[in-house]
Design a protein around this nucleic acid. Structure first.
Lengths: 125, 125
DNA sequence: GTTTACAGTTGACAGTTGTAGTCTCTCGTG
DNA sequence: CACGAGAGACTACAACTGTCAACTGTAAAC
């Protein structure tokens, strides 16, 4: 897992992370709850548990003001890049190329995607 | 998860799957054990448990001869494609393109990889 | 034929995850 | 200032995972 992270981020926890990643600033529990209660149908208690676990794992920082405010300690890019690397290691023999090759041969990409990617490869080196 | 699969394939179970995927034919427990005991440092009991769980999940077929022989019920491609799609859904907003873009911008690919991929995109349509 | 050596089955136990309730404390409102 | 709502801390509990041991057959070896 990403450095400084004790244990993986689970599926449910990831939903919380995504919210924090896309927030402008730190969020209070109330704010987190407002977003997730409806979106995911979770009880307040569940949301608190998930946030606490993320704090224990070192994925989220807890900052005391009137009330605790929470912000991500690891970035979406950092986590994404770890998760992708993990997938590549576990399933594609460590070859990122194989992953992309599999994508290209699968339903995963539309013709338009392929077009775009081709463009990307032209520009980057 | 892939169709016909009851529950995810866990990390340890995946090691068994990989062995079965790369085997020429079905393998007996003995053969599975021979490979994994050393490679992973697992006790025979552990290996048996993993295989049994895979059978329950419908990921592996059990075929009685003198002794049971095991073979995959879902293919590596099928599973890889599901796992990749799952990653894309959970982390890349459903966009395979975003995943590849992230890869291109990360350490994940060497210059040679990029070269190869560029070639791939030239050939495919 | 008795022993040995596994195959197969069942049980086990601790840690993680999904989901949530309870108890206490504090703060804003009447 | 008493009260109610929500914050924070702790507890709960079933399912899944990582590991493995014990028991029960059976088949090969002596």
């Amino acid at each position: 897992m990403p450095k400084d992270l004790a244990g993986k981020i689970s599926d449910s926890e990831l939903e919380v992370m995504k919210l924090l990643w896309h927030a402008e600033a730190s969020l209070s529990i109330t704010e987190i709850r407002e977003h997730l209660q409806q979106a995911k149908g979770w009880e307040p208690a569940t949301i608190k548990t998930l946030v606490s676990r993320l704090v224990s794992k070192g994925a989220v920082r807890q900052e005391k003001r009137n009330v605790y405010y929470y912000s991500p300690l690891i970035s979406e890019e950092e986590y994404g890049s770890w998760a992708t690397g993990d997938l590549i290691t576990r399933l594609y023999n460590g070859s990122a190329r194989d992953l992309v090759a599999a994508l290209v041969h699968s339903e995963g990409l539309t013709k338009e995607d392929i077009e775009e990617l081709r463009g990307m490869f032209r520009v980057e080196e």
